[in-house]
Design a protein around this nucleic acid. Structure first.
Length: 307
DNA sequence: ATGTCAACCTGAGTGC
DNA sequence: TGCACTCAGGTTGACA
């Protein structure tokens, strides 16, 4: 489900509940998601204080006061919801399935897919809080990593640059794509080059830049290894689409929401994603949005104005 | 190295 | 109503 803007939106939504909170208890309801949970996962979290909630690419990372980091990935269908309540006392230990209790449920979710529940207290948001991780497809995962070893951890050591901020410019793109014959679509999805883009925002950025997803990545590089005008357009398009999506609270496809239950609204700004057959929104283009599968993923683009 | 596929898993939607 | 089939915001490992 979530690409960088959605994960950043989730981070902002969870931060008031997570940051400075004490973890009172963790319910881990199954042995694995995409991967097995680490040994003694719940035990190692219990009693810890969360000192900060950060994000790297599509990973959420909660810094803990013992020097470890709780790393969380939402996969395709992961989401968090925050349920506020008075205190730990008085909750039913067993049949939580249908117990609304004193906790407010912002919306209905299939509780069979509630895999992890963090019970917290003491964050900026007052009172006790439950943070529930729900993930029907279970492509997400959680793990614990020592902060000191984070950069060299397999999950992070090969991760590319963030597509936010100004470091992503034409020359950097040129450096990343130089000599690559792989299509732009695949190159932009390659997390070792740029970390955080997914299918939606790659489609959108390529349309904004007027570049075909099938064009070879190396063709936006000059012989001298500098960025072409196309590289400039692409770099700007990526930065803009990501920034706009974050500002909009991400995209709410299907059931995805922000942690407080509100919907992101960037999906209304999609120019091509999931718009097969629509006329190209580019002024004066007159083309039609096509869908073609590339590397197992749908690319939505206009063959007329994306070259 | 490069590019394509299948796999992981469930749910929603479509067409018959 | 049921069934078969396709597709989905991600990642990784196996192939030719």
């Amino acid at each position: 489900m979530p690409e960088l803007p959605e994960v950043e939106t989730v981070r902002r939504g969870l931060a008031p509940s997570f940051e400075d909170a004490r973890i009172l208890r963790v319910e881990q309801r199954r042995p694995d998601l995409r991967f097995p949970f680490p040994e003694r996962f719940a035990d190692r979290l219990t009693g810890r204080r969360v000192t900060g909630l950060g994000r790297r690419s599509k990973y959420l990372m909660a810094d803990l006061d013992d020097g470890s980091v709780l790393v969380m990935h939402l996969g395709m269908s992961g989401s968090f919801r925050v349920e506020a309540g008075q205190s730990e006392a008085g909750q039913s230990e067993a049949g939580e399935a249908e117990a609304p209790g004193e906790f407010h449920h912002p919306r209905s979710k299939d509780q069979r897919h509630d895999h992890v529940v963090f019970h917290l207290e003491g964050a900026a948001r007052p009172g006790a809080v439950r943070i529930v991780y729900n993930d029907p497809r279970r492509f997400g995962f959680m793990t614990l990593v020592e902060r000191a070893g984070l950069a060299s951890h397999p999950l992070f050591e090969k991760l590319g640059i963030e597509p936010t901020g100004n470091q992503l410019d034409a020359d950097l793109l040129a450096r990343l794509f130089n000599g690559r014959k792989t299509p732009l679509k695949a190159a932009l999805l390659d997390q070792r080059l740029i970390a955080g883009l997914g299918n939606i925002y790659v489609c959108e950025a390529l349309h904004r830049a007027g570049l075909s997803p099938k064009r070879a990545a190396g063709t936006i590089v000059t012989k001298a290894g500098k960025g072409t005008v196309a590289a400039e357009r692409l770099a700007r398009s990526i930065r803009e689409v990501i920034a706009e999506a974050i500002a909009a609270g991400g995209s709410s496809l299907r059931d995805h929401r922000q942690a407080d239950g509100t919907l992101g609204y960037f999906q209304h700004s999609f120019l091509v994603y999931d718009r097969e057959g629509a006329s190209c929104p580019r002024e004066g283009c007159g083309g039609t949005v096509l869908r073609e599968v590339q590397g197992g993923r749908s690319s939505f683009f206009c063959a007329r104005c994306q070259k």
